[in-house]
């Protein structure tokens, strides 16, 4: 197959579109999955321990 400007355009207009949509859906599921809720809430407060001393 000849690798031309058109090949590149076709590739970006198909694969580019689909992988970005798939990625968006994947990220949304990961972030908003109820199962992960607790994990992220813990992460958000994890920075607050005494920052000068070890703690968990």
């Amino acid at each position: 197959m000849e690798f031309t400007h058109e090949t590149l355009v076709a590739f970006s207009k198909t694969f580019g579109l689909f992988y970005l949509i798939a990625l968006s859906i994947g990220v949304l599921i990961y972030a908003y999955r109820p199962k992960n809720k607790e994990r992220f809430e813990r992460a958000a407060t994890s920075i607050f321990g005494n920052e000068d001393r070890p703690c968990r």
Partner: peptide, 19 residues
């Protein structure tokens, strides 16, 4: 968050905005 003494409002949104 450290200076405000409050965790980030939505940790989940921070992940979505990151990607």
């Amino acid at each position: 968050p450290m200076q405000a003494g409050r965790p980030i409002y939505s940790y989940r949104t921070s992940i979505v905005s990151f990607w």
